[in-house]
Write a protein that binds this DNA or RNA. Structure first.
Lengths: 195, 195
DNA sequence: GTAAGAATCTAGCACTGCTAGCGACAGGAG
DNA sequence: CTCCTGTCGCTAGCAGTGCTAGATTCTTAC
């Protein structure tokens, strides 16, 4: 009983160890550097051990992505708690900061093909939490527009800015100007009308 | 002289043949299926021939991406010529249709890391053309907002919608509703105020 | 016809994700 | 304490990747 418990606990710890190692490696050198061999090296086990925890490399990336969603949700919640500006701006800045500071994590979550059941399905709780935070940010400006749809639009705009910026496809300055235009447009021109 | 010309012409044809083959392979089976061996097979040459035309696989993808930009620019220009609705909506629908119908091409252009000098530098003409078409679409609704920055915001929104939709991260229906919200928001609420 | 040169291919390297099958070790039974 | 048994992790290997050195074939010019 106890001995069985200890084993399961150790297994769970190693499971998390693998996820953390994959994430660190990705953040330090990009996902291309995350090979099963290097990952096995980092956790000081042989490659087959990885496959006793995850079905394949994709599953490891998926686990990293899900945990990343949880982290994003926490960051957005914290930002909302200590907000100074409008809810919408607070969330937008926190979201974009997350994407800028953790590009590899963001990549796994929202760019790479990681067949997580997002829309229906159901999506993992971490993702629902993150989306819920965005909904809360959009709610004050929604007016009579559909809240969930407007949140998807808000999210899409942020995602577009985040990925195009990261790919160096937008002018590096003008970041603040773009953000201002997005917020102004989505706010029904009620706020941010003039600088 | 003539014989030299013939050789150069044949070389150029083969150059284009490789690009077309890569693009076809990608559109049929995704970029993962585009390996140097399969590509060489498809053009009926051996792998080293590829490397006599391109520095590496990345350069081939880059070439496909640049030509894709030209195609997008043409599609947007044609849409503008035969427009029925507002310029903004016309361009948005054409852009999103392009992304939906040619996902692999879109991927190479705007998602994959393909160090093309986008912002400064200068970017290839095809890309400038495409961006120019977006500018033309945004111009009627810009008002006193900075045209280029607003176009970047417009592009980001479309790009966000395109990629999140393709990754199945948005609700499959509601597409039209999202588009309406984006256009309404960017149009300063002058148009599309009410359905 | 033959030599010079360019164009192309064969074969191989170091790497990838993944797995079959062996060996060592731990736990329980006598 | 010894032996058996089953789990666990490892070594070694497969088929595939991008890329390239060197041999080979083919074309051209004399």
């Amino acid at each position: 009983m106890t001995i069985q418990n200890r084993r399961e606990r150790e297994r769970a710890e190693r499971h998390q160890l693998i996820i953390d190692a994959a994430r660190e490696l990705a953040e330090e050198e990009g996902w291309d550097a995350v090979t099963t061999r290097r990952l096995a090296d980092k956790v000081e086990y042989s490659q087959p051990v990885l496959y006793s925890h995850f079905k394949g490399k994709d599953a490891i990336v998926r686990a990293v992505a899900v945990q990343g969603c949880g982290e994003l949700a926490r960051k957005l919640r914290k930002a909302r708690a200590t907000q100074h500006k409008s809810r919408l701006r607070t969330a937008a800045e926190a979201y974009l900061e997350f994407a800028r500071e953790r590009p590899a994590l963001y990549d796994a979550m929202f760019v790479r093909e990681v067949d997580i059941p997002w829309g229906t399905g159901e999506a993992p709780q971490e993702l629902r939490d993150a989306f819920g935070e965005l909904v809360a940010a959009v709610e004050p400006v929604a007016g009579e527009r559909d809240l969930e749809t407007l949140t998807e639009v808000f999210w899409s705009s942020l995602h577009g800015i985040a990925t195009l910026t990261h790919g160096k496809r937008l002018r590096p300055d003008h970041h603040e100007a773009r953000l201002g235009l997005v917020l102004g447009a989505l706010s029904l021109a009620k706020q941010e009308d003039r600088p």
